[in-house]
Design a protein around this nucleic acid. Structure first.
Lengths: 143, 143
DNA sequence: CATATCAGTCAGGGAAACTGACCAGTCGAG
DNA sequence: CTCGACTGGTCAGTTTCCCTGACTGATATG
């Protein structure tokens, strides 16, 4: 019919972005940051997040999330601080090193976006963004 | 600026499709087919394919590809037959059970596409497809 | 205050990928 | 035609990532 399935095309695109960002972060000297750690770290907010929430958003068990946070903590990317609102919980917050790595990742993300825009033109890029956002209503149970 | 990065949105969409297809295949009684096996099996062609080529296309090592084909073979989805053109090689071909599973997967794939088209409208769906195909020139080294 | 719920850890296991070393068949150059 | 380089594939061993199940301690609810 109309060529490859959009799902496959999205997979290719998503893999490309992840690879680009990972390469950039590693090249910037953060060599101990694995893709899985990065995926977990991507959920971090300024005001901290609970391990359980990371797990839920990333669709992994809290044990897996906890192990990844362990690694991130050991490598100095994050810290665990007590949650003032709930004595059972602890908040995962970015440490300075994590903040630096995140800046590199965001910069690369923007670079990829610029390249795509240059390749597609502003119009088609906007159409892509629009369609993807709209699709999210169907494909993302978190929203 | 303009909401989530397209790479993330693509990831969400791709994960959704993979999940839907996997669920459908499992529901149809192919419960021993893991996502990794399915990803390898998706590369199969009517006329057979070499393990090395599966590895290259799926971007995994030939050892990993070989292990997945082992599993697929053990579960009756594929067979390995000698390659008439090269005595070193063997061709991986679909067995009847694999053909049946593939039919289910293709049907679900089309169902997802229909749902997306209904949600977006034909026009935006076409724009999405168009942009994704164009992006592939940038993101897919295989083309 | 008793019980159910929730945050998180501990222990153990399995799937899927990797590297490195290796064998056997094929191909091209001398 | 044969010898070295290349290629298809396997074997052995390891790592990463994620899972289930059982558990502790803190909080919330009746």
């Amino acid at each position: 019919m109309s060529g490859p399935h959009p799902g496959l095309l999205m997979f290719i695109g998503a893999r490309y972005v992840e690879q680009r960002i990972n390469d950039a972060v590693v090249a910037a000297g953060f060599e101990d940051l694995t893709p899985a750690m990065a995926r977990a770290a991507a959920r971090l907010r300024e005001d901290g997040i609970r391990v359980t929430d990371i797990a839920e958003q990333a669709r992994i068990t809290k044990q897996s999330a906890s192990a990844l946070v362990d690694q991130l903590e050991r490598c100095g990317y994050v810290e665990r601080v007590p949650d003032p609102a709930d004595a059972r919980a602890r908040l995962v917050v970015l440490a300075p090193r994590g903040r630096a790595a995140q800046a590199v990742a965001r910069r690369e993300e923007r670079a990829v976006e610029r390249e795509w825009r240059r390749h597609l033109g502003a119009e088609r890029m906007a159409a892509l963004q629009d369609a993807l956002v709209a699709l999210r209503e169907v494909t993302d149970p978190y929203l």
